[in-house]
Design a protein around this nucleic acid. Structure first.
Lengths: 229, 229
DNA sequence: TGGCGGGGTAACACAGCGGTAACATTCGCT
DNA sequence: AGCGAATGTTACCGCTGTGTTACCCCGCCA
């Protein structure tokens, strides 16, 4: 399934870098390396790996800023920070900047590998039965939306459509793919039904329906769901 | 943002349990507790929280087995293990059993909270193919550009044009070849349409449109795309 | 059997994409 | 420097895709 995940290790200590590379390689990773912050960032942006192993103290661009830049570019790859700084506030800061894990030197290589493997482990993001969409909360169990205490019922189609949107955020979804997943290919309905259903869903989901916040339309293509904003 | 995530803390030391509860509550969590492995497991299965804080040493059912049972039930909720056992093999074992993080006592409450918050942070682990163009990121899946966290929508023509550019970098592209690939040979439009489309694309792509960085014009021929700078 | 609500289509309104034209500017050549 | 051609820029406008409203069909339930 996840054959040969690519890890990028950014670390300026040559000895440590080689040790890490060897260990990750024998653990089944494809290893790329960088020893410089600026260079590493460029590498991440041009060719994002499945996992980023990131030292804090780096020449030219430190790990915190690198992490911030990666998140600003809306890259969602897992980042494991790695540093001699063991102060609690450093760890908190790293995690708040968007790091996914944090280990302090000296560390056991087995633990590091275990944590790395966990980060590249495929995760179904459908774990929660209730999801926040801006001000609104989508309760999949009850098939309702809750906006400041008010419960809004969803019809079956609206529910399936929203589920499809939620499970494919930040992506251009064509009308035909929406039809496939929500209506099922067997049923022959117009793509206008999608528009119609999107309209009703918008009216329930969006606070200001004239300026859609979550469900953006892409002309000639379909729609794109942006949960955060 | 994510209003009031629910955390279940399973811990048999009453003093520690109260301390954790207070801290998590003031950090904005809704806290539920259990002091027994069997009871805790039942609670997880009947009413899964957004996060499980799990001690290893528990009466009736230890944390490892509890973790295994939760995963066996295909519950994907994040689990943060919490224990006095600091041996590396214990940590590795916990992570391999499906735990998402592992902290050893004594631990700093701030770090624990930071790690907990990370685990309930909604993550779209969907890695979509995207390309860096200078400071900007071109997200083909979403059909957008991202600059400084700002996402900029692309129209169909702009998207096709940019796709054509990025797939033929460092090359002089004639207007007629651009027309062929983006507009299709059948359609008869002026080559000025290309200029027009390039202009709008530049305005979205270039930081300083007066001095094009990425899309260079070649007089009497067409354009050339230089992704790096 | 009649009301009702989900959900599909039809009809109409409208907004924005994208094409062209007109004007401004730059570039190359002499 | 001056001129002409190519390209950047702005304005305008038609067309098509989408939002919106209305209507209707059909299954469900009393």
């Amino acid at each position: 399934m996840t054959s040969q995940p690519r890890v990028l290790i950014i670390e300026d200590d040559p000895a440590l870098l080689r040790g890490l590379s060897d260990n990750f390689r024998s653990a089944g990773f494809v290893v790329e390396t960088a020893t410089d912050g600026q260079f590493g960032l460029a590498q991440v942006l041009t060719h994002p790996p499945q996992l980023l192993l990131l030292d804090i103290m780096l020449p030219n661009l430190n790990g915190y800023d690198l992490c911030r830049r990666v998140r600003k570019a809306q890259l969602e790859l897992p980042i494991l920070m790695l540093t001699a700084k063991g102060q609690e506030e450093d760890i908190v800061r790293g995690l708040e900047l968007g790091a996914d894990d944090y280990m302090t030197k000296p560390f056991g290589i087995l633990e590091l590998l275990a944590r790395a493997k966990r980060l590249v482990r495929p995760r179904t993001s459908m774990m929660h039965d209730s999801i926040a969409i801006g001000e609104v909360r989508f309760d999949r169990g009850a098939r309702t939306l809750v906006r400041d205490g008010q419960t809004i019922a969803l019809t079956t189609k609206e529910f399936l459509l929203l589920e499809f949107f939620v499970s494919h955020p930040h992506r251009a979804l064509t009308r035909s793919s929406i039809l496939d997943h929500v209506w099922g290919r067997a049923l022959i309905v117009t793509t206008r039904s999608v528009d119609r259903c999107v309209a009703t869903l918008r009216s329930k989901l969006e606070g200001e329906p004239s300026r859609p916040q979550f469900i953006h339309t892409i002309r000639d293509v379909g729609y794109r769901f942006e949960p955060t904003e």
